[in-house]
């Protein structure tokens, strides 16, 4: 992550071209992580993940004038992205209820992610068993490396609540993916 971008001074005092330059640097340094986080939050649909990541960048760009230094630029941006992903999941659930989303396995026809497809499907099913908040907390902390404090700031929830969601998510996933642990143990 670019320290220059992370430590942006008073954004409102920056000239527009300078601001846009700083934002472009931010996109370059965060694009991959944003896309991966979106992919994990929307449940492995690459097309949807790219849309969510793009929408989050665009929303952040449009709202740059409203950004205040209370949070880091990255915390502020990822808050937007997590909301975008949650909105996408809500819309998808609604469409599924109306009977029109299709086969989840066919959600990403362009690129097959690396790794064992059967294992990925099992992980995906286990992740689907989590509540939306449990999934967000688990992905942010255990897969994307955010701290509890950062996650709490990002989700606008107390740290205790975040820890509680994380505990439940871990318990659930341990139960669902017990053989994944065994598999790992056998391989090591």
């Amino acid at each position: 992550m670019s320290g220059r971008v992370e430590e942006l001074g008073a954004l409102e005092a920056m000239a527009r071209p300078e601001l846009e330059g700083a934002f472009e640097a931010f996109v370059v340094s965060h694009r991959e992580r944003a896309r991966r986080l979106a992919w994990r939050l929307v449940g492995g649909d690459l097309g949807a993940a790219e849309d969510v990541a793009q929408d989050a960048f665009l929303r952040a760009y449009r709202s740059l004038g409203r950004f205040r230094q209370e949070a880091t630029l990255s915390t502020w941006f990822y808050r937007i992205l997590v909301r975008q992903a949650a909105n996408h999941r809500r819309w998808r659930q609604l469409r599924e209820r109306m009977g029109g989303w299709g086969d989840p396995e066919a959600a990403d026809p362009r690129v097959a992610p690396p790794g064992d497809p059967a294992l990925r499907l099992r992980i995906s099913s286990a992740m689907e068993e989590l509540t939306g908040r449990q999934r967000e907390v688990f992905v942010l902390i255990h897969l994307e490396g955010f701290t509890v404090r950062e996650t709490a700031a990002l989700l606008g929830r107390p740290e205790g609540t975040v820890k509680s969601h994380l505990h439940r998510a871990l318990a659930r996933l341990r139960q669902e993916l017990a053989d994944l642990r065994d598999l790992e143990g056998a391989n090591s």
């Binding site: 790794g115 992980i123 255990h142 509890v148 993916l177 642990r181």
Partner: peptide
């Protein structure tokens, strides 16, 4: 605050398989 450091091996496995290209 950094509970993802030194995480359990099955989480490493999950992280490795549950990501886009």
């Amino acid at each position: 605050d950094r509970e993802h450091d030194g995480r359990e091996p099955w989480l490493e496995e999950l992280d490795r398989h549950w990501r886009p290209e």
